[in-house]
């Protein structure tokens, strides 16, 4: 009990003194996940928009697959990216393994399906609402997707926050492809896992508190986005 209390005290000291190691780890986490969510938005939002309006044979299968991929196990994604990026792998020549880039790739693969699937759901509802208007104004496919993305902006922001939350809290994929190398690929989750197993509880706790805080903040923002969105649903 004594040592646990001691750990908390040290953790708070690390936080309040902006300990260099801790700050570095937090910033890398934020950076990697931000990049991953940015790329996931770049691919996932148009993909979701297109799936919301396109009608083709096998569409339901694609959507079901995408929905299922929302729950991809991070370690499996990590393993696949590892195999692709390892020296013997097809993308080994890139030299990305054990770099933040590899972590971005892994997190991108984890959350892109989530972004695409959730945005598809949100945009399909909107599409039903606006279909007649689009036809009446003879809006082309690209214009429809653009309009839907804009009209659904609040719900899509919530989707991106959910993606960011999943990316930053995930440990299995980044520890495999990043390797948890100090000052290079060590992020909050991998550091917590390592420090805990080493018995260095203060740093683990300090990082845990930051991570918890970020998660709460993201969820609060998402809830706020949700309210904004529900304020602007059908009158």
């Amino acid at each position: 009990m004594e040592s646990l209390l001691q750990a908390f005290v040290t953790a708070f000291r690390l936080l309040t003194s902006f300990d260099a190691d801790l700050v570095e780890i937090v910033l890398l986490s934020l950076r990697v996940s931000l990049m991953a969510v940015f790329l996931a938005a770049l691919v996932g939002l148009p993909l979701g928009g297109w799936l919301a309006i396109a009608r083709f044979p096998g569409r339901r299968i694609v959507i079901a697959t995408l929905n299922a991929m929302m729950g991809l196990p991070p370690v499996v994604v990590g393993l696949i990216v590892y195999l692709l990026l390892s020296r013997a792998g097809p993308l080994g020549w890139l030299g990305w393994l054990f770099t933040p880039t590899a972590m971005v790739v892994a997190q991108f693969l984890l959350i892109m399906p989530l972004v695409a699937a959730l945005s598809r759901q949100a945009l399909e509802d909107l599409f039903e609402e606006y279909d007649a208007l689009f036809r009446s104004l003879r809006v082309g496919t690209l214009g429809v997707v653009q309009t839907l993305l804009y009209e659904g902006r609040h719900r899509l922001l919530t989707t991106l926050l959910a993606g960011y939350g999943r990316a930053i809290a995930e440990v299995g994929a980044v520890i495999i492809v990043g390797g948890n190398i100090a000052h290079v690929t060590r992020v909050m989750t991998t550091a917590i896992a390592l420090e805990t197993s080493k018995g260095d509880l203060p740093l683990a706790l300090g990082l845990g508190i930051v991570l918890l805080f970020i998660s709460l903040l993201l969820n609060a923002l998402a809830a706020l986005g949700q309210t904004r969105a529900s304020e602007t649903v059908t009158p």
Binding site: Y130, A132, L133, L137, R138, V139, T147, E151
Partner: peptide
């Protein structure tokens, strides 16, 4: 009425741009 989630004026402008 099927209206977009934007200002009244922006709704009219949208249709004008569409055509």
């Amino acid at each position: 009425p099927v209206l977009l989630r934007r200002s009244a004026q922006a709704n009219v402008e949208y249709a004008l741009r569409c055509v």
